[in-house]
Write a protein that binds this DNA or RNA. Sequence first.
DNA 1: CTGAAAGCGCTAACAC
DNA 2: GTGTTAGCGCTTTCAG
Lengths: 355, 355
Amino acid sequence: MLLLLQSLAHLGIHLPMITIKDIARELGLSISTVGRALTDHPRISRETKERVQEAAERLGYVANTAARVMRGGSSHLISLLVPDIRSEFYSMVAHILSTGFESEGYHLTLSITDDDPNREMQQMRELMSARVAGVVIVPSANPRRETAEMLSKIPHVQLLRRIASLGDWFGLDDEQAIVDAANHLIGLGHKKIAYIGDNTFPTGKARYKGFRRAMTEAGLKIDDSLVLLGPPELKFGTEAVHKLVQGRKPATAIITGAVLVTLGVAEQLSKLNVKVPNQISIVGFGDGPWQRWWGPGLTTLKLPIEEITTGCALWLLHRLKTSRQQGKDPHIAVSPTTLVIRNSTAAPKSTRVLR
Amino acid sequence: MLLLLQSLAHLGIHLPMITIKDIARELGLSISTVGRALTDHPRISRETKERVQEAAERLGYVANTAARVMRGGSSHLISLLVPDIRSEFYSMVAHILSTGFESEGYHLTLSITDDDPNREMQQMRELMSARVAGVVIVPSANPRRETAEMLSKIPHVQLLRRIASLGDWFGLDDEQAIVDAANHLIGLGHKKIAYIGDNTFPTGKARYKGFRRAMTEAGLKIDDSLVLLGPPELKFGTEAVHKLVQGRKPATAIITGAVLVTLGVAEQLSKLNVKVPNQISIVGFGDGPWQRWWGPGLTTLKLPIEEITTGCALWLLHRLKTSRQQGKDPHIAVSPTTLVIRNSTAAPKSTRVLR
DNA sequence: CTGAAAGCGCTAACAC
DNA sequence: GTGTTAGCGCTTTCAG
C-alpha cells in the first residue's frame, strides 16, 4: 500500500497529506487523543503515545502548520528583507540568521526589496498575510508609511540601516568608521582626499558626516569637487572614478563610503590602470577575500557582520519569547569597525618628495 | 480609534489582526459578501465592493494565508535549499529566484543544509509542514530516503547537483567544462597537470571524469599524486595546495573542480607567494569580480548561473500551474560553461626554455 | 485516561 | 446581489 502510494507520487500525482484524522481512523482512536499523543500530553498512556508515534511515522504524517497558525499559533517564520542578497554582506547575514533561527525552530524567508519602497511594502503585505513571527529588515531610504504600520504590529529589528521611527536597530558606528579611515590618510600626509559615498540613507549620511568631521578636525578644507555623493551601488562607484579622473583638481586619496561603491571604484581603478598607491591611495568599505587580492591589497574597513547579525538574531528571538515588549526606548546596538591596513594607502607623492 | 490602536502597537502590544469578520461587522454585511467583494466576485455590486475595499484599507486588513492554505489553497511559498548561501554562486541563485517568484506572486524561503543530510531532512519536514508550493534544491551527496519521499510529494527541481532518483534537474555540463579547462592547458604544452576537486557529488564525479577523459584523449598519463580529491570546501583547497607543494613531483598546472576549492587554492597560492603563471598555471572554476583581480587574472570557467536559475524558476512555475505532471521522464537541462582566458595560464617553463 | 465539540479565517456550494 | 452554512486540520475546553 505504501509502495503503491509512493509510486503514484513518483508519477507526479500529489496525494493529499496525511492528517491527524487518518491516524485516528487507522488506530481506532479519537482525533483529540491522537492530537494529545502527538504533543506529548501528560494524561495519555505511554502505550497509546507509542502506537500513535509509530503510525504517524509509518504513514508519513507531517503536522499542518497552517492549522496551527489558524489557532493563533506561530508560523515559525522569520523574514529577512534586504536590498540585494548578492552582496557578500547580506548573504553572510542570511546565512547566520538561517542557521541561528533554525536551531530555535524558526525558518527564514527571504525578501528582496531592491531598495524600492513599493516592493518593500508589497513584501511586507505578503509577510503579514503569512503571519510571520518576526522580521529582520534592512530598510529602504524612505519606507512607506504602511510599511512602518505593518512593522509596528509584529516583532522586528532593523539591521545596519536605521530609520529612527522603526525602533530597534543593530548597526555599525558609521561615523566613526569613516573618521578612522580619514585619520589614517591624514596621518600619512594626505590633504586632497576624495569621498565617494552615499548620502541617501541615514547610514550614508553618518559616514559622510564622519568624513567632514575628520577633515575639519584636522584643519583641512573639503574640496566639494572631490566629494561625490550618489546611490550605494556598484555603477555609481565606477562613474564616480570617471568624474574624479576627468576633474582638474587631483585627489591624492579616495575614501569610499559603501560596500558596492568600493567594488565599483576598485574595478574602475584597475580598468584605468591607475597605480595604487603611487598615483592615488584608497581606503575601502567592507572586507572579504577579494579586498586582499585587489591590486596591492586594499586598505579597508572591516565590518563586524557576524557580531551584529548574531546580536540581532538573539535579540529578536528574545523578543519572540517574551511576547510583550517593554514600552521603553528602542534598543540600539552600535558595533565598531576595524581599519585593516594593507598596501593601497601610502604617503602622497608630493610629501614623499619633500622628505 | 485608529490612532489609539497604532499607539498601542508602538508600545509593543500586538493586537489581533483584522479579519473579514471585522469588516463585515463594521459595514453591517455578511461575511461571505465581504469575502466575495475582496476577491472581486462578479455577482457583487460595484458599490459594495468599493465600500468593502475602503473599509479593508482603513482597518488595515491583511488576508490570512493560513486560512487559505487550510482550504487547500497554495501557501505561495517556494523554498530554496542550498548548502551555504554565502557562496556567491548560491546567493546569485537566491536573488534571481526571489525576484522571479515574487513577480508571480510566490515568496521565497531559504534553508541552509550545510550539506548535512540530517539537516536537509529536518528542513524538508518543516517545509512539508508549511505546505510549501514548491522546492528548488541543491541536494546533499546522499539525501535521506525520507527526504526523497517528501520531495516526491510536491513539485520540485534540482539545481546544479543531481541525484538521479530525484527527478528534474537544471545543471551544468560538468564533464565538458573540465575537458575544456584541461584541453586549454594541454594546448599550452602542459603535461603534469594537477586536479584538485570533489569526488563526492555526482557533479564532482562528472568533472573528475572530464579531467581523466581529456588527459587520456591527449595521450597523457595521469599522475595519481597530482590528483587531490576532497570535499568542495575552501579549506580542502588550501590543504591541497600544501600537499601539492610538499610533494616531490611538481605539477606545471592546476585545475580546480569546484568554486570554493578555487577560492582556497587561489588564497593559498597568494599566501605562499607562488608566481603564476611562471611557476605554475591554474584554471579555476566559477567566475566573478575577484577572479579578474586575483594575481595576474584567473583563467577560469564561467558558469551560466543566471541561465540555469532562470530556466529552473520558469520550469517550476510551469509545474505549479499545470498541477498534474506528465508521468514522463524527468526533465534534464544541461548548460555549457565558458572558459575565460586571462593570465594565470601560460606555457610551462620547460617548454618555453626548449623553444 | 479518552471522546465530543467548538472555533480559528476563509471559501464555496447552496439557498433566497 | 446577498446571506447561511459547512468544513479545511488542529487545539482546547468541557464531559465523561
